[in-house]
């Protein structure tokens, strides 16, 4: 029976590592699990970290749990000897070894990943005009609300939150192969903008403005998920994200411009500007306006 238990524990690293490798290298039945194919350079870096740390973890898992299983196999009391257990209370050298080696590995890991984090969250793209460097203006203003996504494309002036913004709901069309900056704000509660293919996630906190940036390398249709609980309809807060070629994008924007009639805009926009005023943004008005204009709920 003792052997049975040690085999049970030995199976943990065997099955665990087998499944990690299956998921990493796409072997059935876990071929579709874990992460979808990365769409961006930044995503590839995150994948390398993700896989690298998992391989390291798998190695440590194998070492420790295999030792546990082996200890059960070897040192179980089978009642065939009167010898007592070894009387060992401590070993300072061992303690130092298994503190210092993991510490070195962790220090390496900590420094190694800082660059990727900075690229993803801290080094907001800049543009240099006439020798003056400034942040690249966002192409789209994302307004998250219960339970949908509003996208305001910068109009001809290239600036979001102005009169000529182009409004689209629950559909974000962007050109592939270009660095894109999004500005994000919430109308009500916390939401989170998650695109698994871009390895991109950012909470959108009311009262704060967030910026995200990415560069998708190919034309693809993916989905935007909300990953912060925002109420009963949280599960259906999704939007489509289509990466298209620059030409297709320009055509699509032109189409939106013509469809974006002044009547619709008047019906949807709050009576006063949202910022710095006490007037309400009315979700009812938005819904009514959509219904008038034949939008689906």
């Amino acid at each position: 029976m003792n052997r049975f238990w040690s085999v049970l524990f030995l199976l943990v690293p065997v099955l665990g590592i087998a499944s990690i490798l299956m998921a990493m290298y796409g072997v059935a039945p876990l071929e579709s699990a874990w992460l979808p194919k990365s769409l961006s350079q930044a995503g590839d870096t995150i994948d390398q970290l993700f896989n690298g740390i998992h391989l390291l973890a798998a190695f440590i898992l194998a070492g420790t749990v295999f030792t546990i299983g082996w200890a059960l196999w070897r040192f179980s009391d089978r009642g065939d000897s009167d010898a007592k257990a070894l009387y060992i209370t401590h070993n300072t050298k061992l303690e130092i070894t298994w503190t210092v080696i993991p510490a070195l590995i962790l220090v390496f890991l900590a420094f190694f990943q800082m660059k990727s984090w900075a690229e993803n969250k801290m080094e907001r793209p800049t543009v240099t005009v006439n020798g003056v460097s400034s942040f690249k203006p966002p192409m789209v203003m994302v307004k998250a609300k219960r339970f949908g996504w509003e996208f305001y494309y910068a109009g001809d002036d290239g600036v979001v939150e102005t009169e000529d913004d182009i409004f689209v709901e629950n559909l974000l069309v962007l050109p592939a192969g270009e660095e894109i900056v999004l500005q994000m704000e919430s109308r009500d509660v916390i939401h989170s903008f998650y695109v698994p293919e871009l390895r991109l996630k950012q909470d959108i906190v009311p009262g704060m403005t967030q910026f995200v940036w990415f560069n998708a390398r190919e034309e693809k249709e993916v989905e935007i998920m909300c990953t912060e609980l925002c109420g009963w309809g949280h599960y259906m807060m999704k939007a489509d994200l289509n990466f298209v070629s620059r030409a297709q994008f320009d055509a699509w924007i032109a189409e939106q411009k013509s469809a974006y009639s002044p009547e619709f805009k008047k019906a949807v926009e709050p009576t006063a500007s949202l910022r710095g005023s006490s007037s309400l943004y009315s979700a009812e008005r938005l819904i009514a306006a959509q219904a008038d204009l034949g939008f689906e709920k």
């Binding site: 740390i53 898992l61 749990v65 698994p196």
Partner: peptide, 22 residues
């Protein structure tokens, strides 16, 4: 051991971008 190791994976902020809230 398993719970601790997945903790190390998550402590890496770039990796956490993907797995946070999943």
């Amino acid at each position: 051991v398993i719970g601790g190791l997945s903790g190390i994976v998550m402590s890496a902020p770039p990796v956490d971008i993907v797995i946070h809230d999943t």
